[in-house]
Design a protein around this nucleic acid. Structure first.
Lengths: 249, 249
DNA sequence: TCGAATTTGTGCGTATGTATC
DNA sequence: GGATACATACGCACAAATTCG
């Protein structure tokens, strides 16, 4: 590669990207196959492959095995309302799903665990203390939209009907309602919003591409200043924004 | 690859990622070279390369040509408190700077402009209407930390002492105080938090690398349901998290 | 100062598996 | 089933950058 030139695969990727952005290759259009790219641009199979991979990593296209590489629809960014707890909403994902009336479904899996250093600090318990860990996958219109991992100290919920978040009389009704059922009054929560590249596992679960960005929200519920639950919420940044409505005092 | 198994390059990437997360490969440590990965894991050159690429895309490591692949330092993330307006704080960056007592400085530049389609929609005015656009660069401990572009409709502030955000009797005291000076009572605001790759211009101003992720917050101040100011706040995602403290009703 | 060894980054050719049409 | 196309994988080559004696 001579000085000052781009690598061949970037040159090819740039040209294809330009065609996508100009509308010459609209959403759902099929890219030239790897073999065609090879002949059209006069490059090797590897370069054609690398060029496709760049565009896939950037989220412009997706490969479908046996079929082709297709221009992705750029999803309109949807809003996920994060503030304003409504005690009537029968879902732990009240906050996650409340957006423009969109209906959601979710699946969950609970398992007893011991607190890591990080989780212990967030719950103000000791590392190694028993916690109930619950994983959620939330779907909006059957499309994976949100991952959440929640931790609750067993010292609080053990030997109570709300031990398992999704079982019992108030199962699936959210942290505030469940805690209220055992006379723990949740009065505020904090959300720490950050962004990072999604881990391979996460982007796989969310139906995205490894390396794609996710919004990570570390949420902690408090009762009288004492943390009673904490969670990591992971959202694909391409599709969603987290919205906070704040009063001005 | 037999059914149900992961591809080899993901298996290798997972193992290296685990070593990084467990601290076995601390920041600045050098990963095994491609040749060593090949022999240690018994895989081909391509697989070793692909595994490194996965970790690079995830931001865990960075390759330095001719030297090696190194574990990246994860800067301790600082918190930027976004909720809880304090009318005593003499700064439009009250929200931006309030974190653990860190002091901040800022510079600004105001210019009259006409509203774009997007800004007009956010301020509920007509595209082309006159607005005052103000750019801010906020520094925390002399290090660029936050960019903000604010728009205010001239129909509201024109021919008043608060036309320029940083001038006059209440200059530099924030949107709420300035609006109060012209009898506009700001009562709430919304923040839409998203994440995207930083533009070259932004990452240059923030002292980062093009392509690095930023958190973008679209903030709008309202008075009696009417938008009176809107802003785009851009924060380097590697260094900061936006924190919201929310009441539970 | 020079040069050799190492390492990453890029590129090539090929082969095989598997999904889709 | 056959043809097509992507996904993974192997082995190799070379340039550029770095490191180190």
């Amino acid at each position: 590669m001579p000085f000052g030139e781009q690598p061949a695969y970037l040159r090819v990727a740039d040209d294809l990207r330009r065609k996508i952005l100009e509308g010459q290759l609209p959403p759902h259009a099929r890219l030239p196959s790897q073999a065609r790219i090879r002949t059209e641009y006069g490059v090797s199979d590897t370069v054609a492959l690398e060029a496709r991979k760049v565009l896939m990593a950037e989220g412009f296209v997706e490969g479908r095995s046996g079929s082709g590489t297709y221009v992705r629809e750029r999803p309109r960014q949807r809003r996920i309302i994060r503030s304003g707890y409504l005690p009537t909403a029968p879902s732990p994902f009240r906050q996650e799903q409340a957006d423009e009336g969109v209906k959601g479904t979710w699946e969950s899996r609970s398992i007893q665990d011991t607190a890591s250093v990080d989780v212990a600090a967030r719950l103000r318990i000791e590392p190694g203390d028993k916690v109930m860990r619950t994983h959620y996958l939330f779907r909006s219109e059957s499309e994976p939209a949100l991952l959440s991992t929640s931790w609750e100290p067993l010292a609080l919920t053990g030997r109570t009907p709300v031990l398992l978040p999704e079982e019992g009389p108030v199962g699936g009704q959210g942290v505030v309602a469940r805690m209220a059922a055992i006379d723990v009054r949740v009065d505020h929560l904090t959300e720490e919003v950050g962004a990072r590249p999604g881990l391979a596992e996460e982007t796989a679960a969310l139906g995205g591409v490894p390396g794609h960005m996710v919004i990570e929200i570390r949420r902690t519920h408090y009762a009288s200043g004492r943390p009673v639950e904490t969670a990591d919420v992971v959202i694909p940044a391409e599709k969603y924004r987290a919205v906070y409505d704040l009063p001005v005092r």
